[in-house]
Design a protein around this nucleic acid. Structure first.
Lengths: 233, 233
DNA sequence: ACCTGAACACCGTTCAAGT
DNA sequence: ACCTGAACACCGTTCAAGT
């Protein structure tokens, strides 16, 4: 299903092989990921794409994890931060949730990137912009600074973890089997040993993923707002 | 650093190579993980451990993901569910948090297992026991069933995601560099474009991980208790 | 039915040698 | 300084052939 290139060049027009640079490597990695997914963005595959040997990349990139982190930084530019602006119809919570959904959607589109996002702690410009937007909305809602500072972390963690599990599940062929196995196990549990599980067996699997995530964000936002940080000593 | 074996057998005592079976494969995989970490539990390495070729394992295990899921199910038996029992000094929230910390600790001890737990949705006996315990404590706290059913999912997700990021960070050599990079970026942000970030730059990185996770659990529990589920139509 | 050797198609990373 | 060929030490999975 891979198409070689959308444009074709006559021999005369064909651009010269560009010099290696960190920027060019990352840009090529992003393009490769859009075409074939993050799992194909390996040092060897990327080197082939750049018409060189894998060893050459190590001049500009420390290892595969750093490469994936750079790709993530790039993608974060697609998150829609528009809802930071005050809007007549929507209160700060709704706008906060909207940004979190946009962030989730970006990770969702690129299975594998979410898993690397859980582990990578980006520090690029786009990530800072995202943090600033979330903090601004929490401040607008009157959430004390200390709670907001710890809160953005867990909000982004919920979004990232959800994208990681959903996107992997979506790609995995045995996703449904796994879910079926859990549902069967819950329904088959004994009423004597697992009464709660039996009573809630339908509720546990109810609702579309989107509604559950929306509720999760709102529950967490409410908790952040109302839960005091521990005393420091 | 790998030692061949703790015990040594005379030729006469040396146990015969046991017949392959799913149980034996999983048990060997768990032992291998305890000795060398999950990253060494590959089909090829495990086959070598079992004195056979990798192809033989595929008779009993569909693929590497399923193998790792089986190992996880096994490990979940170590979670301390003791706090489900009513206790004079501690209310349901404290006991709930204690179980969640025990779960986190188990995953924490085995870097890599947490990452696979995020994606694998176990359905074994130990996982059901864990769900039952969490639901029982939420019921004791008077949390409506629908909220509890959706709540256990996000609570376990927070625990799993935290274990996944922390344990990876701990193992990764550039963990501190990454953190330093983010701290430097935040402190270097412009007061005009990122006022919230600048104002909270110290708070964002404050506190030991344990205190932050404890606060996160409590915030989420409070939110679960107080946030209504969306109307169904 | 169960087991396996060998093969296919890959990996990340290092290092000595070149320009 | 930058770049690279070749090597080292691995992967997951399949399949034809054996017992």
């Amino acid at each position: 299903m891979t198409t070689r290139s959308d444009k074709s060049f006559s021999r005369r027009e064909r651009p010269a092989k560009p010099a290696l640079s960190r920027e060019w490597i990352v840009a090529t990695a992003v393009a490769l990921m859009r075409r074939e997914g993050l799992e194909r963005v390996t040092m060897r595959r990327l080197a082939r794409e750049l018409d060189t040997g894998p060893a050459s990349l190590y001049v500009y990139v420390a290892n595969t994890a750093e490469l994936h982190a750079a790709v993530l930084d790039e993608l974060l530019g697609e998150v829609d931060l528009g809802p930071v602006q005050a809007q007549a119809e929507a209160d700060w919570r709704d706008r906060l949730v909207r940004i979190l959904f946009s962030y989730t959607a970006v990770l969702f589109e690129h299975p594998g990137l979410a898993r690397s996002a859980l582990v990578t702690r980006p520090s690029g410009r786009h990530y800072l912009d995202l943090l600033e937007a979330l903090l601004a909305l929490l401040a607008e809602g009157g959430v004390p600074g200390g709670r907001a500072a710890w809160g953005v972390d867990v909000l982004l963690q919920m979004a990232t973890a959800t994208a990681a599990e959903q996107s992997t599940r979506y790609a995995a062929p045995d996703a449904q089997e796994e879910m079926d196995a859990l549902m069967a196990a819950v329904r088959g549990a004994s009423d004597r040993t697992h009464p709660q599980l039996r009573a809630l067996s339908e509720e546990l699997f109810s609702g579309p993923g989107k509604a559950r995530l929306d509720w999760g964000f709102r529950a967490l936002i409410n908790g952040i707002q109302q839960t005091a940080r521990p005393d420091r000593r």
